[in-house]
Design a protein around this nucleic acid. Structure first.
Length: 211
DNA sequence: GTTGCGATTGGCT
DNA sequence: GCCAATCGCAACC
C-alpha cells in the first residue's frame, strides 16, 4: 500500500530530508514504461553554507532549480558525460538545498534498466552510483524541474517501518577543503546496492575520511 | 578569451 | 589501483 510523498515531506532542510528518503521508492511511469527502485543511498547538499554545494556561490543558470520550490527534480551534467539527479529540499529564501540520489535497488522494470545500462554486469550495479541511477531511469537535463509530487516521476512510501538506523559517513568524491569531512551521506546498512562503503566503520563513521 | 576541473564511470594494468 | 573520456561552468586573465 504505497502512498505518494507530498510537498510537505520535501519542505525540510536537506540534512533532515536525506535520511528519510532511504527505503522510499522512486517510480517512473514515463513513455508507457514502469520503473521502480528503492533508494538506498543519499547525500545532502546544503546551499550557501556548504562548499560542496552547487549553490555555494549563489544562483546560476545551472543550479537555478535548487533555488526553486521543494519536491522538484534537479538534474545536472558533470564530467562531460554524466547526469546526476537530486531532490530539491526546503530552504530559507534566497538559499538552496538538495539531496543527491546516489544509489537504489532495482525493483521493477529491470529489462529497461539493463538496456540503458549495458555496462552493468550484475543487476546490483544497475543503480549503484548517481550517474548510473540517472542513466537507468533515462534522466537528463530535459528532466530538470520535474515535479515529484505530481508528475510521471514520483516518490512513494510503501508503509514499511524502518527500524534500523541508517549508516552515515562523509560524502563521496569531494576534494579537500570542499566539505569532505561533513557526514552528510546516509545509506541502508549492508545493502549490496549501495555504491560506496556500505557498513559502519571507524574510517567512515568515526571521524570521517581524510582526518 | 582561456583554463582548470568536477557531487563519475568503466576499462585496463 | 590507475587513468582516460568529455564538456559545461565558473574563475581568472
Amino acid at each position: 500500500m504505497a502512498r505518494r510523498l507530498t510537498r510537505a515531506f520535501f519542505d525540510r532542510p536537506p540534512e533532515e530530508l536525506a535520511p528519510d528518503l532511504l527505503n522510499k521508492f522512486l517510480v517512473s511511469t514515463r513513455d508507457a514504461e514502469k520503473l521502480v527502485a528503492r533508494i538506498v543511498e543519499v547525500e545532502a547538499y546544503c546551499g550557501s553554507t556548504d562548499p560542496a554545494s552547487h549553490a555555494y556561490r549563489g544562483k546560476t543558470p545551472r543550479n537555478a532549480r535548487m533555488f526553486g520550490p521543494p519536491g522538484h527534480l534537479y538534474v545536472y551534467f558533470t564530467y562531460g558525460m554524466h547526469y546526476c539527479a537530486n531532490v530539491v529540499a526546503g530552504s530559507p529564501v534566497d538559499d538552496a538545498g538538495a539531496v543527491l540520489l546516489r544509489a537504489a535497488a532495482p525493483v521493477e522494470g529491470l529489462q529497461v534498466m539493463r538496456t540503458r545500462r549495458p555496462a552493468a554486469r550484475k543487476d546490483r550495479d544497475l543503480l549503484a552510483g548517481p550517474a548510473r541511477l540517472a542513466s537507468a531511469f533515462g534522466l537528463d537535463r530535459a528532466d530538470d524541474g520535474l515535479d515529484l509530487v505530481r508528475g510521471p516521476l514520483g516518490l512513494y512510501d510503501d508503509g514499511t517501518v524502518t527500524r534500523v538506523r541508517p549508516g552515515r559517513s562523509p560524502r563521496i568524491g569531494l576534494a579537500a577543503g570542499k566539505g569532505e569531512r561533513a557526514r552528510l551521506r546516509w545509506f541502508v546498512t549492508n545493502d549490496p546496492h549501495v555504491s560506496g562503503p556500505r557498513s559502519p566503520s571507524r574510517r567512515t563513521v568515526g571521524r570521517g575520511i581524510g582526518t
